[in-house]
């Protein structure tokens, strides 16, 4: 099966909204119709054909050859199929995804995986701020699925996370897991200050303890069986994160400013 390939002609002059280019939304369109889809975001929007050379193929596997920081909302609300990007993307990559797989070889912008509910997202490079976070006004961030970021995440990764598993390999910025509702964030690199600010529930696992608020309390090191499950689940997808999870961990309970039922875990 040959994938449907979008080859970038040149850097677009405006931000693109690529939410229309998912397997489900393209399944019934001819390639000529696809080329006519408006994907620009200004009053004179670019069309697919202006930005990409198209090579027709199986609509359930979509490949972007060449990326841009102006590729927004790639794989938004995707339910099944595969999207692969050879390059970088902009904002809201995989936002609201429900299933399928999104693989980005390069970096992603802010709000990657925002509100995702399922599926697998892999970002080869760094991602911006607010990984998995809700968009303005929405109440919940990532709500399911598995996200792997091979590089670093920006500030407030997994803000308002509700469910799911996010593993970031090289580190994260400040306020990781802010206002977390639940879910699991594993960061296998250095993490900025005040992780878990106002978290209600949820788990943030880090290789070392950064500056934390006094509303997190040391609960000591006790074996926690569940980390082994996560290690097994992540073993193939992120050996680095799996290794961290297999270590003996020390638990800090908080944030007692709010409900106080979350936890920060670091090697004992």
């Amino acid at each position: 099966m040959k994938p449907l390939v979008f080859t970038l002609r040149s850097e677009p002059v405006e931000r693109l909204d690529l939410s229309a280019l998912t397997p489900a939304r393209l399944s019934d369109l001819s390639s000529a119709a696809i080329e006519k889809l408006a994907i620009g975001t200004t009053q004179r929007p670019l069309r697919v054909g202006d930005v990409f050379r198209l090579r027709d193929g199986d609509r359930s596997v979509i490949r972007f050859s060449g990326g841009s920081s102006r590729f927004d909302r790639i794989a938004m609300a995707m339910e099944s199929g595969v999207i692969e990007v050879d390059g970088m993307v902009g904002r809201e990559a995989g936002c609201g995804m429900r299933g399928g797989a999104l693989t980005i070889s390069g970096a992603a912008g802010d709000y990657a995986a925002s509100g995702a509910r399922g599926g697998a997202i892999e970002i080869g490079g760094d991602c911006g701020d607010f990984l998995g976070a809700p968009l303005v006004g929405e109440m919940e961030g990532i709500n399911g699925g598995v996200v792997i970021v091979r590089g670093r995440a920006g500030h407030r990764a997994c803000d308002r996370m509700r469910r799911g598993l996010v593993a970031v390999e090289k580190g994260a910025g400040e306020y990781a897991g802010s206002r977390m509702i639940a879910g699991t964030l594993v960061v296998a690199g250095p993490v900025g200050g005040f992780p878990g600010t106002m978290m209600r529930r949820g788990t943030i696992i880090m290789p070392a303890l950064p500056e934390i608020a006094p509303t997190f309390l040391d609960c000591g090191a006790t074996p926690l069986g569940f980390t082994a499950l996560y290690a097994t689940s992540l073993a193939a997808r992120s050996p680095r994160a799996a290794r961290l999870l297999r270590r003996a961990l020390r638990r800090f309970g908080g944030d007692t400013a709010t409900l106080g039922k979350g936890e920060l875990l670091v090697p004992a």
Binding site: S19, M76, G115, L135, V136, G137, E138
Partner: peptide
């Protein structure tokens, strides 16, 4: 903002 008709298509 999320209840507005034109809110970011979502």
């Amino acid at each position: 903002p999320e209840a507005h008709a034109a809110y970011m298509a979502r």
